[in-house]
Design a protein around this nucleic acid. Structure first.
Lengths: 233, 233
DNA sequence: TTTGGCTTGATTGTCAGCAATCAGCAAACA
DNA sequence: TGTTTGCTGATTGCTGACAATCAAGCCAAA
């Protein structure tokens, strides 16, 4: 476990920076789901007061990464099948709206940028740098959302993507058909660039459809509480 | 012996209750947009410490009702035309998803409940109780969202609806055709009850369309930056 | 008159300590 | 042996005091 380092040097607000550190530890899987978080221990490691840690934890709770049991404990959120279904369905709706709006705003320069990212993604996959690939994948989706010029949407999307990443870390989930992934991204980007709002929205929503259907099926089988574990390399 | 009910609701945490009070003051228009909020003053009025007030304000900031300027001030959020556009477009996407999912889950009992609410709405409007009518309107939409059985969606929807109400209070906005409002609700409810997911989603999204178009037009005219109201003596 | 730095009062950010609450254990009891 | 009850250590909730930061006004120099 990489040690949490002191915050006493930088400039942003202390509680934000504390949240940043804890958040990245969670997203990297250093702090696994269900792990108990002690305010006192965190405040010692981060060299800030307990109040500041509490504020940081409250922020992370709003992002869905930690949960609070009043008077009792904080813990890293677990992601059940139900949670995953919620996350992916919400993601579909948000990215659908984002793609629709992006298609109305896109400029030539934006188009070049998107195609550049798609190229990066292609190369990362071809060269087997799958870690990079998932990063670029998220960047690509975020880039489209930014084109929507919609502050609230961007913020919600950031939280949802965070939870998707968290869920992937926990479940070891990876895409199982990279060729299709590339094709889907390509189609989505071109629809956005072409300004075809309806098609862009539809593609953005379908992008999740496979996962959503799988999850819904698992739920119907009654394994709702169980965690997913399905590795596909 | 009458059944004992859980105390967990009574024993709510102090900062939550502080947030509740401030929130309702904002939503009722007692605290207008742009109004500065002083931690010290609030802590005296609510008879809690400043730390508790800070926690409450942080929650309200997450809900979009107040804004923080670091080291300087808290203030009630103003709702510009851009903000309104963001709120209504997001609402459309969320309620679209909600209606789609609701259509898949709805039972006969749910259907009765929805029709009951629609009846209440009808009577409130016919009898000129417009205040009640808007309340029932929101309840109706929330009832549909609940049918989606989607925790994250429900939470996001709560926040968005709150912001819609806030914007209505600020701008003095009221529906301008109550007959059409009734018809739209009726159609939406029946689509949900019929289990027609596509149609339910479409109707839920169109429900906002008029406002969104109006706002988009205003934005193109360049009046986007203007705030509804700032500064109080 | 304008501009730039300085002072100051007000306000927010952070901290350390006390109070309230809880989970778990062990003794008492049936 | 199983259940209840009271205790205790640990942890979170809340508070009051102190530190850091800012805007706003003042004043002198250009």
């Amino acid at each position: 476990m990489t040690k949490l380092t002191s915050l006493k040097s930088e400039k942003r607000l202390l509680d934000r920076r504390a949240a940043d550190q804890i958040r990245s530890h969670i997203l990297e899987g250093v702090l696994p789901a269900g792990e108990r978080l002690l305010e006192t221990q965190l405040s010692e490691e981060l060299e800030v007061s307990r109040g500041t840690v509490r504020s940081a934890l409250a922020q992370l709770a709003n992002e869905g990464l930690v949960q609070q049991v009043a008077f009792t404990r904080w813990e890293v959120s677990g992601t059940s099948t139900v949670d995953a279904w919620e996350i992916y369905t919400l993601r579909g709706a948000l990215e659908g709206l984002g793609a629709r709006l992006a298609a109305a705003n896109v400029t030539d320069e934006d188009g070049k940028r998107l195609r550049g990212l798609a190229d990066d993604l292609l190369h990362a996959i071809r060269e087997g740098r799958l870690q990079d690939a998932t990063g670029i994948d998220f960047d690509l989706h975020t880039a489209i959302i930014e084109l929507a010029r919609h502050r609230r949407l961007a913020e919600q999307h950031r939280f949802i993507v965070q939870q998707v990443r968290f869920h992937m870390v926990q479940s070891g989930f990876l895409p199982n058909d990279y060729e299709e992934l590339i094709a889907e991204h390509k189609a989505l980007i071109e629809a956005v660039i072409a300004g075809d709002a309806d098609r862009a929205e539809k593609l953005a929503r379908n992008h999740n459809e496979a996962e959503v259907k799988l999850l819904a099926k698992l739920l119907k089988q009654g394994s709702g509480v169980k965690r997913i574990r399905e590795k596909a390399s």
